Simulated assay, not measured.
Amino acid sequence: MRFLVTGGAGFIGSAVCRRLVANPQHRVINLDCLTYAGNLASLQQIENYPNYRFVKADICDSQTVAEILRDEDIDVIMHLAAESHVDRSIDGPEAFIETNIIGTFRLLTAARAYRDSLPAERAARFRFHHVSTDEVFGDLPFDSGIFTEDTPYAPSSPYSASKAASDHLVRAWGHTYGLPVVLSNCSNNYGPFHFPEKLIPLVILNALDEQPLPVYGKGENVRDWLYVEDHAAALEAVATRGRPGQSYNIGGRAERRNIDVVETICRILDGKRPRAGGSSYLDLITMVSDRPGHDRRYAIDPHKTETELGWSADESFESGMAKTIDWYLANDWWWKPIRAQKYAGRRLGERAG
């Protein structure tokens, strides 16, 4: 199959590209405008593969998108391009509206025109896969509830609101124009090549630099954690075997409190890279004021994806975290240049507007 992956230089997108390109029968076109979180270094291992091509462009550039769809004879669009950091959306929501909503609209418009130009047989197998988040569902109590594909939307942050809007646009294009769309909503990802301002890589790298390990509030907020390579496998299944008009929840069945995540990282690092003097990385944990509108808990039910598409996560939280830490310990060539840029001169997400 011939895939157009938008946002393929990002954390999840690069994992998708690496997975798809490993199959020599696939061709993968990676379209990314290389914002702060896009990094071609994450794709070094596949950049010279004959079935891979990178195009630097914005999803809002309708002409370039249309040319790629036509020239590359695309079968599947996997739409991952998005502004995705909740704290950044609090400090500057405009970019999230532009990329996540307007960008998705322009991509849908191009996809519809392209699909309508195809012969009937080709048009029937074309798919538009929109990759979204569990944050569109809002907040859950600490002691009950789980997100299913039928959970009503209740986004809390500018980020999740922009993703909810894009989800609705995709469904509308499927319902109104007959565009063969599939959607997926995932839980929190972690793993190699994760941008260093997100919780897990931030804690790992701050610990290695002997810096404070910031934890919001009391650290009791709960997230379901999904190893990124498992997510990439699920996304391929949704894109190639998902039923048009359906959405699929993807989760790792690994709910953890934020403080438990941080403490797990500290204990693994204590064994793999002990601190000088013998003290524990746990001593670096620093509780900081919570961010505005911080959802208490996310929990996702991946039963439909598991039973209908035959996917399940290979990594447990413990095995995935050990692999992640090993990767960061062995690959400072990737993360040191990013840390050196001082991408976060101040703490993000402190402003309420």
Rank of each mutant, 00 (worst) to 15 (best):
D58I: 07
P93N: 11
F11G: 00
L43S: 03
K323F: 00
L348Y: 10
N189I: 11
N258W: 05
V181M: 04
I265D: 01
H194Q: 15
L226R: 01
V21T: 12
A113H: 09
K323Q: 00
A110Y: 11
A330L: 10
A239H: 02
D260A: 14
S184F: 02
I68W: 03
L348H: 07
F193T: 14
E229C: 06
S160R: 01
D116W: 02
E83G: 09
C60M: 11
S157F: 00
G271D: 12
R53S: 13
F317N: 01
V55R: 07
T6A: 01
S62A: 15
V215Y: 01
S84H: 08
K272A: 13
P155W: 01
I259D: 10
R27W: 07
I59P: 00
H130N: 09
S316L: 02
K56H: 12
D75Q: 06
A276I: 11
K272W: 03
P196N: 09
G310M: 10
N23P: 09
G219P: 02
L118T: 04
W173S: 05
G217H: 02
L108S: 02
M321P: 00
Q341G: 13
P212A: 10
A22H: 07
I285R: 00
N39T: 08
R257M: 13
P337L: 06
G13V: 13
H303M: 14
F317Q: 00
G13S: 11
Y153D: 09
V222P: 00
H26Q: 13
L199H: 01
N48L: 11
D32T: 05
S162F: 04
N221M: 02
Y52Q: 07
R257P: 08
A22S: 15
L284N: 03
R291V: 12
A110I: 04
L140G: 06
S89M: 08
K163A: 02
A330M: 05
R339E: 10
A207P: 08
E318I: 11
N100A: 03
Q44V: 14
